[in-house]
Computed example of a mutant assay.
Amino acid sequence: MNDIEKLFEEYSDCIYRFCCNIADNLYEAEDLFQDTFLKAMEIEAKVMAAENKKSYLIGIAIKLEKNNRRKKARHKEIAPEARGFDRESDILEAVAMDEKSIEDSFIEKEQIVRVRENLQELAPSYKMIASLYYGESMPIKEIARIVKLPQGTVKSRLYKIRGMLRKGLED
């Protein structure tokens, strides 16, 4: 088993989750995930030399996502499309798999769906920070290094994100 295969085995779940959080839909997330590991294969020596390989892979995914957004804007292909994940199937899955009452399951899943929808509405830079902090449980210092921003800026953006999410849930 070569080095990239080992990295894939170790980090594929968290990188896939991150890609789902920052992409506009599931198809783009899957493409981003695949492109991230393809790029990692191209620059294998740099990836293997990195001190924190997970952060390096997340950095690759961020750069690829930024490039994809630039391409869309450049080609003016931004059109309304289904954002986020399949809401109805998520709710039905939760009801079917949970042992809680149907009402509790529905309410809990509805809250998760609303948070996801609100996260998808965030600006891409906010979405990345929220995904790294809440989805990957990364410390602020590491997030600041990945997105190349001061720690104070990351903290203030997290504060703004919480406010936006709170406002979105109250509406």
Rank of each mutant, 00 (worst) to 15 (best):
S101Q: 03
F33Q: 06
S131R: 01
E9Y: 07
F37D: 10
A61W: 09
Y27N: 14
F8S: 10
E10I: 08
S55Q: 07
A23K: 07
V113S: 05
A94E: 03
R17M: 08
N2M: 05
D24R: 13
I112R: 12
I146N: 02
K71D: 01
L64P: 12
Y56V: 01
I143W: 09
A73F: 08
V154W: 00
E121K: 15
T36I: 01
M1D: 05
E42K: 04
K46S: 13
K160C: 02
F8E: 09
K53V: 05
R74W: 00
Y159D: 07
D90I: 13
Y11K: 11
S125D: 15
E42V: 07
R116F: 00
L132Q: 07
I146K: 07
M1A: 13
K100H: 09
S137L: 09
I91G: 01
I4T: 13
I143D: 10
I129M: 02
G163T: 09
L26Q: 12
N2Q: 06
Y126S: 13
F106S: 04
P80Y: 03
K109T: 12
L64N: 13
M41S: 14
R114K: 13
E65I: 03
G135A: 00
L64H: 12
F18K: 04
M164D: 11
L64W: 01
E44A: 02
E30H: 10
N67D: 15
A123F: 02
I112V: 14
